[in-house]
Design a protein around this nucleic acid. Structure first.
Lengths: 329, 329
DNA sequence: TTGTATGCGTTATCAG
DNA sequence: CTGATAACGCATACAA
């Protein structure tokens, strides 16, 4: 049996306004009557109806989070970051898996809007024009994580510079033939940026850029595994491979080990992301650590600032990454 | 600018009832007026307010999913299963991370109830009495995944039998000294069941049960790593280890490799779960595959059946597991 | 300090 | 086929 505010008002012998007052402990209520009301609430097991409340006050204490796929190693950590600070601020979150599918993205966005979420956290690759426009026109605040679009608030890292750092590290280690397995190159802020960083670093070190040593991957294990196999089959194979995601890098490690190539002695491998497994596989993976949890937490923090009309000193926040040297390099 | 049903009614020159009718395409509306209304909706970019709708019709097309921790390898896959079928049935899901913390569990449960979710999917270890009672008293349908309580609907696998199968496999392979790193032994339906299966199988094969060969772990990497280290330090170390979770098993593999113990020649390792990484690490991990995605999908399907008043021929569904032999055994 | 009344944006009943 | 109107459960302005 579900009771409402009227039921407790009747039971306590007061009006619904006073019940409402004690529930929201607003205004002053005489201790005696407050007690009565609380007793009635207790006895009936009354719980306020957040839907009715939301309709009235025009916010839902609910936000949506759109990500490509929660079962992809990368996202759970950032979702966890989002959820933790959302919880601190009493928000609940709707989880939406878009699979980077434009239709799904639009469909979820519409659903979230209809459900009157107070805000949205979005992650994805290149944001399609149609969606980007919707985001900008929408009156619900949106913050982007790990991607960027127009003047929308976002939290990212400098992918381009991170790649440069990795390659410089490898060069300093004495490597001259450095291969790369890239991400999605159509995505300028992540995939392409990492590739361009690689190019730039080689160029600055006066190392010839060999088209053959670049394989386009797609972030997942299989493409890393197969990419590395190809790279390692060249007569003049690379002595180091920079892989644009840890999951692919773990695939590359497997490809090397299957061929009996020793890591890191005959081949150095460096990944990108620092997913949980990067430190657990054997040999453990050197990688650029994206602060995934923080990206989520800070993204959500930015959103709460917008929702509370706090001033945002910076719509575009750029987080620090770090290089973690482990056994694979 | 956000428009409501009144705005489109005015713009289309009809009453709000007819707008409502075309939005829900209920009853017959004359094609001509329907057209007018649709035009108005289009021009205003009207979107129905799901909150108001929910208040009236008393359902929200929303469910809650409570899990220990989305950043634990095991859960994303089942959450994905839940989400996919939820999406098929037009439900959105609230994601809640409980950290197995009783207070958080209760707090989230209350929040979900206040937000009027239509149902809840719950995962956790041993369900605390207080929470179990709440579940049973609640008028919102709850389905348990990977755990069990009273007469609540649940979807699980037979953990006890799965362990027996693993040990029998190991025995058939010729192993006589088989160690185990267990899960949480206070949890009867998972942790304890797996341990008991191990005991049972040994007993039936007339192999002595050596207390020393059992280490209590906690599902995560670290405990697997440390547990294996201990086990492998014994003068008379086991030739095989059954590890109650893949994440721990990957820790065990690392411990062995660090000691220069060859897998599977000197030591066989078998895990439990078949998380994504199990097939990707090197050597790849033999394991009991829990159908995680299906557990989620079927759990959600059960929930939709309850919500649609379809008959449930079986409140307790037991899914099949399978043994996957890979390189580690 | 407390109560009455109005409206949030819908759906649904009932007349027309 | 269409339109008034009464809920849904709550918060709040205003009155008392």
């Amino acid at each position: 049996m579900r009771f409402n505010i009227k039921d407790v008002a009747r039971k306590a012998g007061v009006s619904i306004s006073t019940v409402s007052r004690v529930v929201n402990d607003s205004k002053a209520v005489r201790p005696r009557t407050k007690e009565k009301v609380e007793k009635a609430i207790e006895e009936l097991g009354y719980k306020p109806n957040a839907i009715a409340r939301s309709l009235k006050i025009k916010n839902t204490k609910t936000i949506g989070i759109m990500i490509p796929d929660i079962s992809n190693q990368f996202y759970p950590e950032v979702v966890r970051g989002v959820e933790d600070v959302a919880n601190m601020y009493k928000y609940n979150i709707f989880l939406c898996n878009t699979d980077l599918d434009k239709e799904k993205e639009v469909q979820y966005f519409d659903a979230l809007e209809e459900k009157q979420v107070d805000g949205i956290i979005f992650m994805g690759n290149l944001i399609p024009l149609e969606l980007g426009e919707k985001f900008q026109k929408s009156d619900i605040p949106i913050v982007l994580i790990g991607t960027d679009y127009g003047d929308l608030p976002s939290v990212t890292i400098n992918n381009h510079q991170a790649s440069i750092d990795v390659i410089n590290y490898l060069i300093k280690k004495g490597h001259k033939k450095i291969g790369m397995i890239t991400g999605k190159e159509y995505d300028p802020v992540v995939g392409l940026a990492r590739k361009e960083g690689y190019k730039k670093a080689l160029q600055e070190a006066d190392i010839e850029y060999v088209e053959e040593l670049i394989i386009e991957g797609g972030y997942r294990f299989r493409s890393g595994y197969e990419g590395a196999k190809k790279l390692l089959d060249f007569k003049n194979r690379p002595t180091a491979i920079f892989v644009a995601s840890d999951e692919m890098a773990i695939g590359a490690i497997r490809a090397a080990l299957e061929k009996g190539i020793a890591i890191p002695d005959e081949l150095a491998i460096v990944g990108f992301d620092n997913i949980d497994m990067a430190g657990k596989v054997y040999p453990s993976l050197s990688t650029i650590a994206q602060p995934m949890y923080e990206m989520g937490a800070i993204g959500m923090r930015v959103l709460t600032k917008i929702l509370n009309d706090e001033t945002l000193d910076n719509k575009k926040v750029l987080l620090n990454y770090s290089f973690i040297e482990r056994e694979s390099s």
